[in-house]
Design a protein around this nucleic acid. Structure first.
Lengths: 114, 114
DNA sequence: TTGTTATTTAACAGGTACGTTAAATGCAGT
DNA sequence: ACTGCATTTAACGTACCTGTTAAATAACAA
């Protein structure tokens, strides 16, 4: 496992089950049982996923009797957005080039038809 | 390895060597040898990292004599930003609560001093 | 053809990820 | 203390990740 924070966050997000858990939590806190229900995997497996998310700082846990409610903490995602945003000009550049290319294609098309 | 695109992208980004490669490529295309130089790992290892990045669509490769130039393709990052942005209100909410908390602390502080 | 350079593939090792089932823990109620 | 419920930990298997070195491949140059 990586120790730098960004790697930790990205690898936590790299699993679709964990992203689904975050999505569920974006609607409010939930118990481990509630989080397990929608999936076809065992509760221990979900418990491990929660440990990964907690270690990445993406969820926080508390205690309420025998329940361990899980709550979303989205703050590490700000770091992700910051990192990704530094590449924005590159993907926007690529989209523009694609647009120009498609426009050129279309132009060539209508030229051909005339 | 995950097959859904977002998982593929996130796990490609979860490695600091691969992120460093992307950063280098944001300044222009490079050969495998050039990409290997700054790191303390072997060229086959870099070659494998490039395969992962290519599989995630984050780089594209071409051929020029015996060189295989690598070029950044940032378009998959648009998908990442889109996913992460849907959580923006959550982390901004958290920051606001933190600000309010700090303001409250400071207020309590100056009250105490008077 | 032969040699040189750039890169990839093969074969291997060690560590990590993710799932399972069974046992342990923690808390509440009787 | 005993029972029941929610959750975690333990033990295990399988597969994947990341690195290594040595061999294979591809393109050029003589």
């Amino acid at each position: 496992m990586q120790s730098d924070h960004l790697s930790l966050t990205f690898s936590a997000l790299a699993d679709p089950t964990r992203r689904a858990i975050l999505q569920r939590l974006s609607q409010g806190q939930a118990s481990v049982g509630e989080l397990t229900a929608p999936f076809a995997i065992s509760m221990p497996a979900i418990s491990r996923h929660l440990k990964v998310l907690e270690h990445a700082g993406l969820v926080v846990r508390s205690r309420n009797a025998q329940w361990r409610p899980v709550q979303l903490n989205a703050t590490p995602l700000a770091e992700v957005v910051h990192w990704v945003e530094s590449y924005r000009r590159h993907w926007e550049g690529a989209f523009e080039r694609m647009d120009a290319y498609l426009a050129e294609l279309q132009k060539g098309d209508s030229d051909a038809k005339q």
